Simulated assay, not measured.
Amino acid sequence: MPSKSAKFRRPEPREKAPARRVAIVAFPGVTLLDISGPAQVFAELQAIDLPGAGYSLSYLSTSGGLVPTDVGMMVETAPISSIRPNQVDTLVIPGGPGIWALRQEAVLMKWIMEVLPKARRVASVCLGAFVLAWIGALDGKRAATHWRYCPRLADGFPKIRVEPNAIFVKDGRVWTSAGVSAGIDLALAMIEEDFGHTTALDVARRLVVFLKRPGGQSQFSTVLAAQASDVEGRFSALHAWIIENIAGDLKVETLAKKAGMTPRTFARAYASRTGMTPASGVEALRVETARLLLESSEIRGVVEVARRAGFGDDERMRRAFIRHLGISPSEYRSRFSG
């Protein structure tokens, strides 16, 4: 029979698991946000009570010291020799205008190649995908990079299946992301993989960003093209009003009255400024609204999403999704919903 003292003995505190090292490479001309975006996401975990080991961040360069970024700000780094390849859990290779000279950095490229088979996962942001391409890490894999450089990556490396519409791509343990801010999406996806949807959503809320951005780069093109073409912002207020009244009857006459024009003048001016007809513009904003609703776990039915987004019925919404995104609402939900 156990003694009284043994019966009420407090359990020994469990030893906390060591943090997983995230090594972010830096080089002259690196894009600052390619580094700071993922780093901020990973660092935000420090404020959250995690079920397992968190991350420790290391910023590394060939020789260490201050490294100039593309905007002139300096990043303090440690030399790559201070970290053994088997100590790296996640390797992140950012991009930037200085990426092209990196291929000649024999010491750094050799270190990356040594880390590659030992790290749990390897990732690139923006043009960092070219580093992984140079060393053959993307051969036979799907990959993303900045939309402007997708043709160059595809032409230069035919063994890579470049996905120009993707914000990020995970193929096995190799992750690649699109341009600049897409590194934030990539880091959030890694947190979701390691710690679950709730923790990743908590981090996203703290940073005031989408946990899962709706769609890929080209899937933003309809709305973004309208904003880019409307350089004077003539219809910005109208677009905001449309979103606020997205389930309403948004006929050309209604929009024209809100814009203070005759229907004919409005239709001509809107098409000239945005490159879309008013009906196409409304449909694009309804698709945008429906995306966000589909990502939410609060609304289960596709029919209800269609109603709230102003489509009226789910078949009309399905046709709009196919036109704009190339997938159905159900397929979109299965991919992006938490």
Score class of each variant (00 low, 15 high):
168 F>M: 01
230 D>L: 05
179 G>A: 10
54 G>Y: 03
279 A>I: 06
61 S>F: 00
20 R>F: 04
60 L>G: 11
114 E>T: 04
38 P>G: 09
90 T>Q: 01
54 G>P: 03
72 G>T: 01
125 V>W: 00
169 V>T: 10
100 W>D: 11
173 R>G: 00
21 R>M: 15
50 L>C: 01
38 P>M: 08
176 T>Y: 07
136 G>M: 10
65 G>P: 10
183 G>C: 02
55 Y>T: 03
71 V>E: 10
301 G>F: 10
99 I>N: 05
230 D>V: 12
95 G>L: 03
170 K>R: 15
301 G>S: 14
106 A>K: 13
254 T>N: 03
41 V>T: 07
193 E>G: 08
108 L>H: 04
248 G>H: 14
123 A>Q: 08
31 T>M: 12
283 E>N: 13
251 K>V: 08
32 L>S: 08
184 I>T: 15
63 S>P: 04
237 A>C: 01
89 D>I: 06
281 G>M: 01
249 D>W: 10
201 L>D: 02
150 C>G: 11
123 A>R: 07
293 L>V: 07
43 A>V: 06
215 G>V: 11
14 R>I: 09
308 R>G: 05
251 K>A: 13
28 P>S: 06
170 K>G: 08
27 F>S: 12
195 F>G: 02
177 S>R: 04
279 A>K: 06
138 L>P: 12
30 V>W: 11
31 T>H: 13
161 R>C: 13
190 M>P: 02
48 I>L: 15
154 A>T: 08
101 A>W: 00
140 G>D: 00
187 A>Q: 09
251 K>I: 05
318 R>C: 02
252 V>A: 03
96 G>R: 01
36 S>C: 08
271 A>V: 08
183 G>L: 02
14 R>M: 08
208 V>Y: 10
248 G>V: 03
248 G>E: 15
264 R>V: 11
176 T>C: 09
235 F>H: 04
61 S>A: 01
311 F>M: 01
269 A>V: 10
81 S>A: 11
163 E>R: 14
228 A>K: 07
279 A>R: 06
52 G>R: 09
216 G>M: 12
223 V>G: 02
8 F>Q: 13
147 W>A: 13
188 L>G: 03
307 R>D: 05
85 P>Q: 09
25 V>C: 09
130 F>A: 00
37 G>I: 07
293 L>G: 05
41 V>M: 05
75 V>F: 02
286 R>N: 01
30 V>A: 10
211 L>H: 15
335 R>K: 15
187 A>R: 12
306 A>H: 08
6 A>S: 15
327 I>H: 10
179 G>V: 01
89 D>P: 05
236 S>V: 15
103 R>D: 02
170 K>A: 15
238 L>N: 00
181 S>G: 03
110 K>L: 06
